[in-house]
Write a protein that binds this DNA or RNA. Structure first.
Length: 520
RNA sequence: GGCGCUUUCGUCUAGCGGCUAGGACACAUGCCUCUCACGCAUGGAACACGGGUUCGAUUCCCGUAGGCGCUACCA
């Protein structure tokens, strides 16, 4: 078994945008596959034609591209095990359904949805299983000739799996160990529906995993209760020796309150639950995405990887995809659900944002500036990036130490740097910083200060420092905070000499004059 | 209701019979300082409960309680 090539799959239903929990499941599959030099398969499980949502498949593919989770084969990637869309595999499933039917391991059932509904109404905890199947309308209770006739007449039916009661079915789970369930509590699951000539999830899933030679099934914990059914299905087909190994991942829970993470939590607390922004084609509703919110894909991946798995104490929590691949270990996955700590997600984003290479900033910053009506030319771009990188993301303090600012999202940047491009228009007298640093004597001091600036020949950072520092010593005037109000409008921003040097003498003086006029 | 999974700081977790129970996020305080930050330092903060097993349980077993999931002609 250790010789078997690792092949895993991520197999979503195209019923809407990819939930962040699904992203994590895919990520774990990906890490596992890459670590073992195996294959990652992308399969579309669209066996419920009524729930198909246009655009969902494309959305999912785009989301993984953005996140850097790569598939080796599957829908849109090709491969030797296709087709990878279940709706295109009808013939295959029919063959295997027939195989079970012929072997007496499955049977036709003609009970209509209405009849079943009625049954559930009159019998408490009704379940279609060994205890009830002989009281229903199916090929076990009806004469064979009548069954043939009904099918020939086009009567709607389903094929159900015949579960032998009274057996303990053991599922070996890589994360949880052996899980045992008695087959008597399992129902005779519907395997195939005549209405759309498609199988249900369970049948399609087992057949495809077998045919695609999947070695490991890594999926969410919600599948654990049906895992014994899947084991039984492998047995019924005679595929137990190549049955994949199972691993059921803990679920992602709400940040606060009870239950699993839902879209509503994101709306309520202000964080996305989808990787990309999603425009619902029916309702027109727009759901925010990590990408559009200014998250970096590396940060999302890193954060998600650590929700339910941990490499241990000796490692930093800031891990690249390559490091995650190297360290990942299914058996070290935790078994209990993880609350979704979106505050920590922001911290991860901060980590990646401040250490981003300059080149990657160019298009991003350019976009921000254009969005705010600042035109940059390609020649100027580099200067703008350098300036913003040095003065907004990272700067040098008076002692020459490199410092970094608390920027968590790309969208935080504009408010932090707009003063480089736009002079403060109005001043808020109620602002704490303004109140504290603009006193009655300040206007007069600023006028004196302006004369010093006026006389400064070398208006560079160093030139200003050499001219102004001695003056503050002589006069005892400490101009920096008031000066900051003039140029920035509030208590933030880089070193004042650096800022003034960037703005230039004219603009610096203009802004001070304006502030004096307004604040008096 | 039935079945299954699960339970260490507020949160994510390390721990795999003997530890002052460790780290990260968040929080608080201090240092730095021309502002906001960053950084650094410090601090508070946890083994759900009850029985066993054992010389010794956070760790193993059994209950109880809580949490989560499944219980469709959805995945």
């Amino acid at each position: 078994m250790s010789e078997r090539r690792v092949r895993v799959r991520f197999a979503p239903s195209p019923t809407g945008p990819l939930h962040i929990g699904g992203v994590r499941t895919a990520l774990y599959n990906y890490l596992f596959a890459r670590q073992h030099g195996g294959d990652m398969v992308f399969r579309i499980e669209d066996t419920d034609s009524t729930r198909f949502v246009p655009g969902a498949e494309e959305y999912i593919i785009e989301a993984f591209k953005w996140l850097g989770i790569e598939f080796d084969e599957g829908v849109s990637y090709g491969g030797n095990y296709g087709p990878y869309r279940q709706s295109e595999r009808r013939d295959i499933y029919q063959k295997y359904v027939q195989q079970l039917l012929d072997a007496g391991k499955a049977y036709y059932a003609f009970d209509t949805p209405e009849e079943l509904e009625a049954k559930r109404g009159e019998v408490e905890n009704f379940q279609y299983d060994a205890s009830t199947r002989l009281t229903m309308r199916n090929s076990l209770t009806l004469p064979a000739s009548q069954v043939q006739q009904m099918i020939a007449d086009g009567e709607q039916y389903v094929v159900r799996f015949l579960v032998e009661p009274g057996r303990d079915v053991v599922v070996h789970d890589l994360i949880r160990g052996d899980v045992s369930i008695n087959s008597s509590i399992l129902d005779d699951k519907v395997l195939f529906k005549s209405a759309d000539q498609l199988p249900t999830y369970h049948l399609a899933n087992i057949v495809d995993d077998h045919l695609m030679d999947i070695s490991h099934v890594i999926r969410g914990e919600e599948w654990l209760p049906s895992a014994p059914l899947h084991v039984l299905l492998y047995e019924a087909f005679g595929w137990t020796d190549t049955m994949p190994r199972f691993a059921h991942l803990p679920l992602l829970l709400k940040p606060v309150g009870n239950g699993k993470l839902s879209k509503r939590d994101g709306d309520r607390l202000g964080f996305p639950v989808f990787p990309l922004e999603w425009h619902d084609p029916k309702s027109g509703e727009v759901s925010s995405g990590y990408r559009e919110k200014g998250y970096l894909p590396e940060a999302v991946v890193n954060f998600l990887a650590l929700l339910g798995w941990n490499p241990g104490n000796e490692h930093s929590e800031v891990l690249s995809m390559a490091e995650l691949i190297e360290l990942f270990d299914l058996e070290k996955c935790s078994r209990n659900g993880a609350r979704f700590d979106y505050i920590k997600a922001a911290w991860f984003n901060h980590q990646y944002l401040i250490s981003r290479p300059d080149a990657e900033w160019v298009p991003e910053l350019d976009r921000i500036l254009r969005a705010n009506g600042i035109e940059t030319t390609p020649e100027k771009e580099e200067d703008v990036v350098r300036m913003m990188k040095l003065k907004v993301i990272e700067y040098t303090d008076n002692e020459g130490n490199k410092k970094k600012r608390n920027v968590s999202f790309v969208s935080d940047l504009w408010p932090l740097c707009r003063f480089f491009f736009v002079a403060p228009q109005a001043f808020d007298r109620e602002d704490k910083f303004v109140r504290k640093n603009w006193k009655e004597t300040t206007a007069e001091e600023m006028k004196q200060f302006m004369r010093q600036l006026q006389e400064t020949e070398d208006f560079s950072t160093e030139g200003l420092r050499q001219k102004i520092d001695p003056w503050t010593e002589e006069t005892g005037i400490r101009p920096w905070n008031a000066w900051r109000i003039c140029l920035v409008g509030e208590g933030q921003g880089p070193d004042m000499y650096e800022l003034a040097a960037f703005l230039g003498k004219d603009e610096t003086l203009r802004r001070i004059e304006n502030a004096i006029q307004q604040l008096g």
